[in-house]
Nucleic acid binder design. Structure first.
Lengths: 191, 191
DNA sequence: CTTGCAAGCGGAACACCGTTCCGCTTAACT
DNA sequence: AGTTAAGCGGAACGGTGTTCCGCTTGCAAG
């Protein structure tokens, strides 16, 4: 499975291949916006002006494509917060807000993270490997400061937040942000 | 769309049809356990010893089949609690526990409730119509007693709980029950 | 018991999807 | 210009949901 995004891949890729990968990433991003991360392979290929075989050559599994499309945004989530939040729990809340913003704007991504479809398996691994340590660090700091009860692990918290974001984009009566807030409130030490 | 479960359907159904409906319900229930509520139509039909056309005749949409299979359990959830819980918030918690138990033991049902697949549309309506009033009543009582903050609607709470149950059956590191507990804790009045 | 009819049935057929595979094209280096 | 293999396209396959229509059969009337 090729890196598919990092500019210097050890030994050069052919120029047309490079072009196709770029076109595919752009086409996939557009299709994901319009039809969600389950957008049909053929649609993406057609939009990029390539055959379906070309998709599978560069992105053997759907997860590879999704990861590549959202690589930069995940990088930003994995990076330390730009501004100081004042307290460990405020820092946790700020990060969770960013995470929710990311998920809520991606059709079907939150659901894909919970899918047992083998094509999405690598997605769990990739996203969680990157983000769970961040979440865990923030959570443990808040716990150490006595601002959170140690009820859940960082992993569980991320999964719970991800779950609360599922379907939010198509249900005007459901406010994922508020639900996540309530979940975090549930971690506050009892009076 | 036939009632498919109530014994007296106004004008009698043919005896073989009645047998087939019963066989289908049994086959579907078994398939749902083994392969989840997305079990292939052909599998269910084969198991019941009927053709696929027969499924669609009695259950035009997958939602109809799912609703029929779980009808009794939903009825129980819609019925008032058998025992007095002591306080409105304890009653809410008890009911939520039952709801979670129901969802967690059904492969893919929680996810189906969030699916935007048109075949599942009627599922949202049916389940929510039955259960949201119950949840709303319990929640409002708890709010009135000052045991819950009025942060969310009964609808949102049910959606949130349902979401927290997605994928729980296949992830040993994730405890849906505990997450739901935390969510409910988030509704307690702040110290 | 025979007959007529429509409810009901089966499964072929169709549309769509992910995925694989292989013969052809073409970039890149000599 | 020649050589080579990386890369490409899209036909083909298997699995799905869904529709459709000719045949079967329960059932009631004669």
């Amino acid at each position: 499975m090729p890196a598919a995004d990092t500019p210097p891949p050890a030994y050069r890729r052919r120029a047309d291949a490079e072009r196709n990968v770029a076109a595919l990433l752009e086409a996939a991003a557009a299709s994901f916006v319009e039809r969600g991360v389950d957008a049909p392979v053929r649609d993406i290929a057609a939009r990029a002006g390539v055959g379906v075989g070309t998709i599978y050559r560069h992105f053997p599994t759907r997860a590879d494509l999704v990861v590549a499309v959202y690589r930069h945004q995940v990088d930003e989530l994995a990076a330390p917060a730009a501004t100081d939040a004042g307290s460990p729990s405020a820092a946790l809340r700020a990060w969770v807000d960013r995470f929710v913003d990311f998920l809520v704007t991606k059709h079907g991504l939150a659901a894909a993270l919970r899918s047992d479809d083998p094509a999405f398996l690598a997605l769990h691994a990739s996203f969680l490997d990157r983000l769970v340590p961040v979440c865990d660090g923030l959570l443990e700091a808040a716990v150490a400061a006595g601002e959170c009860r140690p009820q859940v692990t960082g992993y569980e918290l991320m999964r719970g937040i991800g779950n609360l974001c599922i379907g939010a984009e198509s249900d005007p009566r459901y406010d994922a942000r508020r639900m996540v807030e309530v979940l975090l409130d549930g971690l506050r030490p009892s009076s």
